[in-house]
Design a protein around this nucleic acid. Structure first.
Lengths: 218, 218
DNA sequence: TAGATTGTTAATCGATTAACAATC
DNA sequence: TAGATTGTTAATCGATTAACAATC
């Protein structure tokens, strides 16, 4: 299924977007699509689309294009969405609750098995049929359920402590919403950061750049 | 202050991260830093650090390095964090409430002036001293407060409709958490997307790739 | 078969890294 | 002055785009 060379991060980060567009096309009943059409929809070049897919193998057919369903399934398999994973979420503040309630975990093969917070007022509440527990219970929970993935929705200072515990409990995969630099302390883990404030600052730059450009062109 | 060539997106997306590290260094009382030290801390190369800063001008001093405070202030100014902006947030579900409650808007020059939702049960509640209003009030609000930035925390289907209205009210800057492709319909706007589920799928890929690599090396 | 579109190689473009003279 | 470190140019590396033969 895979050509098994090392895939570049640029390509990997485009895969979820391909997957989204293909899911959409499929739900619209589109059966096949050419690299040219898909590229136009996603504002890429047809060359890039073909190069990207050919990192993993030839999914298309000359003169025809790609089967939407097959291509979507291939990418689903490349992303490993079918492989079951168990997640623990730490931090049930506004952000943690939003992630717990909002995110489509099941289609990615993820079971959210535990939610933890140290705030007594949150403990006992239920999100997605998961009861928020006291962070003290993290060790016993992990020994019982063996999650392989942790979602960090605690502030930076708490994250350092939580991470030390999670790491010693054997967790090596992190979805990190905090500003704590997990990979700096644990070089052997896989961390995917979501830095919302970086995104907002980037927007700030682009706004002030745009305003300046308009001012200049007047 | 600026060299005013076109700055590449790669550089722009690193600026918030520089800003975060410099803020941290400053709060730790560090007065100066060399490109080599900063690069080590951020896992970049010293070359890249210097190239990045020199897009905007020479902020350092040979034989000495960079003044943390001055450099931080320069980047703050490049990002335009000091320029006042008014934001309207649409969608006060879990995600919208998390963004409203969690995000540090003030340090970026952003005033969150209005929050809107169509869910009657949410209307009237207060977040950060802003009352959630009915989405029907969007037009009158925008005519009164003239926000220049919209934060989209509604589902994809709602986003299309909301965007049409916001666009016609003159809003050109969007922080988009939905899967609606704003830029496809309005090519003249500046959109910064936060696709949390793409990030999670990227993590899924990296997990299954890591597991596979470990299996192979056994 | 003719037309369309892929898979893949080659060319281009841009971003990162290395090197070093300038200079504090 | 000697040592350190920048700013900047040149070299390398990687990613994107273009081209085209293969083939459905």
């Amino acid at each position: 299924m895979a050509k098994s060379d090392k895939i570049s991060m640029s390509v990997i980060r485009r895969l979820p977007r391909y997957y989204r567009f293909l899911s959409e096309l499929q739900s619209e009943g589109v059966m096949r699509i050419s690299s040219k059409q898909l590229a136009a929809k996603m504002r890429l070049t047809a060359s890039q689309v073909r190069q990207d897919f050919n990192c993993f193998g030839g999914f298309g057919q000359q003169g025809y294009g790609y089967s939407v369903e097959q291509l979507k399934n291939e990418i689903e398999s490349i992303l490993g969405l079918g492989e079951p994973k168990t997640a623990v979420l730490v931090g049930a503040g506004n952000l943690g609750r939003a992630v717990a309630a909002h995110m489509a975990f099941e289609p990615k093969g993820i079971t959210l098995a535990g939610i933890f917070d140290r705030n007594e007022r949150l403990i006992g509440a239920t999100l997605r049929n998961v009861k928020i527990e006291n962070t003290d219970m993290l060790e016993s929970f992990c020994k019982r359920r063996r999650p392989n993935l942790a979602i960090l929705c605690v502030p930076k200072d708490a994250a350092q402590n939580i991470c030390r515990r999670l790491y010693s409990l054997g967790i090596r995969y992190y979805w990190n919403f905090s500003h704590y630099d997990v990979a700096a302390d644990y070089p052997d883990v896989v961390v995917e950061n979501v830095h919302m404030s970086d995104s907002l600052m980037t927007l700030c730059y682009r706004i002030s750049d745009d305003i300046e450009a308009k001012r200049r062109s007047e």
